[in-house]
Each structure stands twice: as C-alpha cells, then as structure tokens.
Amino acid sequence: MRKMSHIKKSVITALCIALCVVLPLAFHAIPDGGTIYSPMHIPVLLCGLICGAPFGLFCGLTGPLLSSLITQMPPMAYLPPMMIELASYGCISGLVLQVVHTGKRTADLYISLIIAMMSGRVISGIVKALIFSAGHYSIAMWVTGYFVTSLPGMIIQLILIPILVLALEKSHLIPVCRKKQTE
C-alpha cells in the first residue's frame, strides 16, 4: 500500500475522534438511532482500517471519553467497558488488515471487519464478566447485548464501512491500495 504520511494519519484520527462525538448526535434524528446503529463504532473501525492499529486504539480510547465529557453520552458508568470495546475494534481491525492478503481489497476489508467486531465483543464480554460486572454477568446477557440488540448496527457497519473505504480511495482522499491497482 502506498504509505500515508504520519501527519495525515494523525489528522484522520483526530477527525474520527470528532466523528465519535458528532455521529451519535446526528443519529438522534432517527428514532432509537443511537442504540440500534452503534454510530460510534463506525469511525473507530474506519480509523483502524485506514490509519492502522495504534491510531485505531487511540481513537477507540479517546472517542467515547470525549463524547462523554461533551455530550454526557455514554454516561460515565458505561464509559470504561465501552472504551475497552472500541479500543479493541480499532486496534484489531488495523492489525488484521496488515496480515490479511487475499488479493481482493473488499475481501480483506470484510475479513478484518468481522474479526475485529467479533474479537472486540469477546474482549468486552470478558472484561465485563471479570471486572465491571463481576458475578452479575452471564452468557445470555452478553449474547443479548452484543448480538441481538445491536444486530441492525452490525449489518449497517458491515455494509457501510467497506463502501466508505472504497469511496474514499476512489475519491483519492486516502491512498489507493496497490494490490487493487494491479488487479
């Protein structure tokens, strides 16, 4: 992949952090938009895929923190597990995209996304079970919270994020993957 400058990665990360604050507010125009679509996940996953694991990790940690300070969403009580969940999404999506090379850009994106979304949920569940809700957390609560309620959000993310990455590449706002150019 043609390298993106460090400054550009920093600015895109800052932009994704800002989107973590703005996007949930925009989604409030849609009834129950915040809870159904998990809008904060989109910029964090995107940041991990575009800028790499360390930037994705930082975006995942800072985005919810800033949003909580500015808009009081999420409430402080939900903040620590959410920060860990989003940081895992950002970090793992960046890491997996670095090692997955199927030769098809869309397949790479989907594999990274699905692995990041699953492992982020597993990590968050483990952290909740061991630290934040120790003794009060069950598999049923985990499945309901992370897969049933947020199913529309997961589908939207799986449709939207690859489209966004490809649209940004097409409009030359982020460097185009060389593998794709040679195909």
Partner: peptide, 24 residues
C-alpha cells in the same frame, strides 16, 4: 430506518475526509 442512514453518513464522511485532507 436503515435505508435512511446511507444518505446521511456517506456525504458526512466524504466531506469530513476532505477537511482532513486539506488540513494535513
């Protein structure tokens, strides 16, 4: 509801990334 997300998010991200590109 799901269909209403795309017309909001896609232009927002594209214009946001244009800002980021100009700033960087």
């Amino acid at each position: 509801k799901a269909a209403s997300v795309l017309p909001l998010v896609l232009p927002l991200f594209l214009s946001a990334f244009r800002h980021a590109d100009a700033l960087s």
